[in-house]
Design a protein around this nucleic acid. Structure first.
Lengths: 134, 134
DNA sequence: CAACGGTTTGACGTTAACGTAAGCTCGTGG
DNA sequence: CCACGAGCTTACGTTAACGTCAAACCGTTG
């Protein structure tokens, strides 16, 4: 299959997305079961559009950042809050998540800095002081 | 207990560390079982020193960054490679992890930027264009 | 027509990271 | 003396995030 008509740049089969993002179809169905995706159906077959594809990208990025699907679900709701929620409530949640992410960024910066230091130490000659007996 | 003599700033009971870092003693024992910690023993009782406490800090930071204990274990070995490993091999691993972390940082920056944009959009008045019907 | 590839819905298996409970040992204090 | 709290080990329970069949339903292609 894989979009044979060249017409539909907007419709994706489950296998298309699976291949594109290097995940299993099972995973995609699982995300739907958890409410992170909601593809349309043609008969029983799932049909994905751009919106779902975009959400999938966010899901995978969330996973790379170490978040649970539960977290990611909350996170996605920030994106499609089409003013369906009270604005101040939305802003509150965004602020929360931003704080968490910025903390994570600090952790990350610290870790990167430490690793770079380790790298330097590894390359540089040892400091030659009580280096024996361990 | 909790270091009654004021003398030993260097010895910690399992409960001390658990309380200090807000985790369970079970978790600490689990980390030991996985080889991430190796406290000394007095009889059967675990006795932790600064080194283990430092490792615990790294473990928890790794967890906040979303890494598995397996990953963290590899990561810790970078810290205590006392030239026990071949230097170039060490540097290789450090580079690897750095690359991964910097990718994660990019994801993070992207996400933070997007959230800030959402925040602005939420605060700003809607763009008033085909905003009805839903 | 019959086989084949792709898809669907169950349903059970698996791994990670602990939680929780049971049963035993110590050292201490009323 | 005996209860109590702290620690230990062993072992089973739990949740998340899928993996892995199994059985059945298309659509089409040789």
């Amino acid at each position: 299959m894989t979009r044979q008509h060249s017409e539909n740049q907007d419709l994706f089969a489950i296998a298309d997305l699976a291949k594109e993002f290097g995940i299993s179809t099972r995973a995609i169905r699982f995300y739907e079961a958890k409410g992170l995706l909601s593809p349309e159906r043609v008969g029983a077959t799932r049909v994905f559009r751009r919106r779902d594809r975009a959400r999938l990208i966010l899901i995978l990025r969330g996973k790379r950042l170490g978040f649970s699907l539960r977290d990611i679900s909350d996170y996605l709701s920030l994106y499609d809050a089409d003013r369906s929620q009270q604005v101040h409530l939305l802003v509150g949640k965004v602020e929360e998540r931003l704080a968490s992410l910025e903390r994570q960024r600090d952790d990350l910066e610290t870790t990167i800095a430490e690793l770079k230091e380790i790298r330097e130490l590894a390359v540089a000659p040892p400091t030659r002081s009580r280096s024996q007996a361990g």
